[in-house]
């Protein structure tokens, strides 16, 4: 399994990584090697094996429906890149 430069561009876009064009082929080569390593999995028959998403087979604990948080906007926005009137500013969202 190897990744083409086009596939790397596609994946980089999905992950919103603005990879420099000059770096694409090196990533393609490295990612292909990782996929080769991963490819060993295909030799194993996993028919009927339940996928394991968590180390422990336990169920979700539930929280009581209580408001426990207070307004901490000022603290949370202290390190924010750009705020105004309590809002986080971003380039125009077009809908």
């Amino acid at each position: 399994m190897s990744l083409s430069s086009d596939e790397v561009r596609k994946v980089a876009h999905l992950a919103r990584l603005g990879i420099e064009e000059s770096a694409i082929s090196e990533y393609a080569e490295q990612l292909s090697r990782i996929l080769e390593l991963v490819e060993q999995m295909q030799a194993v028959d996993t028919e009927g094996v339940e996928p394991m998403a968590h180390p422990q087979d336990i169920s979700q604990r539930l929280r009581d429906d209580e408001v426990t948080e207070t307004d901490q906007r000022d603290r949370f926005q202290e390190g924010a890149p750009q705020v105004e009137s309590g809002l986080y500013l971003v380039p125009k969202v077009i809908e």
Partner: peptide
């Protein structure tokens, strides 16, 4: 009363980001 995964209030009409924990 509170959000699905946090203890912040879901009351409508609060000042922006004052109910975002």
């Amino acid at each position: 009363c509170s959000k699905i995964f946090s203890g912040a209030s879901i009351a409508y009409g609060a000042e922006p980001n004052t109910q975002a924990c």
